[in-house]
Amino acid sequence: MTFADELATTLELARWATHRMTVRPTSVTTKANAADLVTETDREIERHVCAVLADRFPDHAVVGEEYGGEPAVDGAPTWYLDPVDGTTNYASGLPWCCFSLALVDADGPALGVVADPFRGEVFSAVRGGPALCNGAPIQCREANTLAGEVVVTEWAAYRPWPGMTTLLERLAADLCTTRIMGSSALSLVSVAAGRAAAGVIGEFNTIDLMAAVFIADQAGADVRGQDGEPTLFPASGGILVAAPGVAERVWRAWTAPA
Rank of each mutant, 00 (worst) to 15 (best):
Met210Ser: 15
Asn205Pro: 04
Thr145Phe: 02
Ala197Ser: 14
Ala192Arg: 05
Glu149Tyr: 01
Gly202Thr: 02
Val223Cys: 10
Val223Phe: 06
Glu142Gln: 15
Thr231Cys: 09
Met164Ile: 01
Arg141Asn: 10
Ser184Ile: 14
Thr165Glu: 14
Arg179Tyr: 00
Ser236Gln: 14
Gly163Asn: 09
Phe214Met: 12
Thr206Asn: 05
Gly220Ile: 09
Thr178Gln: 06
Ser190Lys: 01
Arg224Asp: 07
Gly237Met: 04
Leu171Pro: 08
Ile180Phe: 00
Val151Glu: 02
Ala192Ser: 13
Glu142His: 15
Gly182Pro: 05
Pro160Cys: 05
Glu229Met: 11
Asp208His: 14
Met164Ser: 01
Leu146Asp: 00
Thr165Lys: 12
Ala197Val: 06
Ser183Pro: 05
Phe204Thr: 00
Thr231Arg: 06
Cys140Glu: 11
Ala216Gln: 07
Ala157Leu: 09
Ala235Gly: 13
Ala157Tyr: 06
Thr145Asn: 13
Glu154Ser: 05
Leu186Arg: 09
Ser236Leu: 05
Thr231His: 07
Gly225Val: 01
Ala147Phe: 07
Gly225Thr: 01
Met164Lys: 00
Leu168Tyr: 08
Pro234Thr: 10
Leu167Gln: 00
Ala219Asp: 14
Ala211Leu: 07
Asp208Gln: 14
Ala192Leu: 10
Leu232Phe: 07
Ile207Glu: 11
Pro234Trp: 04
Gly237Val: 06
Ser236His: 12
Trp161His: 13
Leu209Asn: 05
Cys140Thr: 15
Thr177Asn: 10
Ile215Ser: 12
Glu142Phe: 11
Asn205Lys: 15
Ala157Asn: 08
Pro234Lys: 03
Val213Phe: 02
Ala235Arg: 11
Val200Pro: 06
Phe233Gln: 01
Glu154Trp: 00
Ala212Glu: 08
Gly225Met: 01
Arg179Trp: 02
